[in-house]
């Protein structure tokens, strides 16, 4: 996918996503989060959902190695149980170039059973080729 040609509203991903209990445990171990609350309440860590969704969107737009994640917005709307099937979509918010840097925003929406679960927006700065 050529990210430079993507206009506002362009769909980047539109796919199903599942976070198993095992995947959630691997995520919690990786981030060093030993909070017992997730198991006690049988909820998938929403940061795990957000991380997987953001990574999928960033892979889809094939960001170059020089791209920098500069900002992040997240809203945890509704917790869900492990192994719930999510629908994950991402669209381009902004895509513009100023002073040799491209500023791209990706808007993420994750739903389960038609209800919003996690909403977010990633801001990414990408040096333009040939820019000083």
């Amino acid at each position: 996918m050529d990210f430079s040609s993507l206009g506002p509203g362009a769909i980047v991903i539109d796919e199903e996503l599942t976070v198993s209990q095992e995947a959630a445990d691997v995520y919690l171990l990786a981030v060093g989060d030993a909070e017992a609350l997730y198991a006690e309440h049988q909820v998938t860590p929403p940061m795990a959902i957000a991380a997987l969704a953001m990574a999928a969107a960033m892979r889809a737009v094939e960001l170059p190695p020089g791209a920098v994640h500069t900002g992040q917005e997240l809203t945890f709307v509704r917790p869900v149980m492990p192994s719930t099937q999510f629908h994950c979509s991402a669209r381009v918010g902004q895509n513009s170039v100023r002073r040799g840097t491209r500023f791209l925003t990706l808007q993420i929406q994750v739903t389960a059973d038609g209800h919003s679960t996690v909403v977010g927006q990633a801001s990414i700065a990408i040096p333009e080729e040939g820019a000083a």
Binding site: L37, H41, G71, Q72, E73, L74, T75, F76, V77
Partner: peptide, 8 residues
């Protein structure tokens, strides 16, 4: 986990 918002 139910309504928290982050902007960073």
């Amino acid at each position: 986990l139910t309504g928290g918002r982050l902007r960073v």
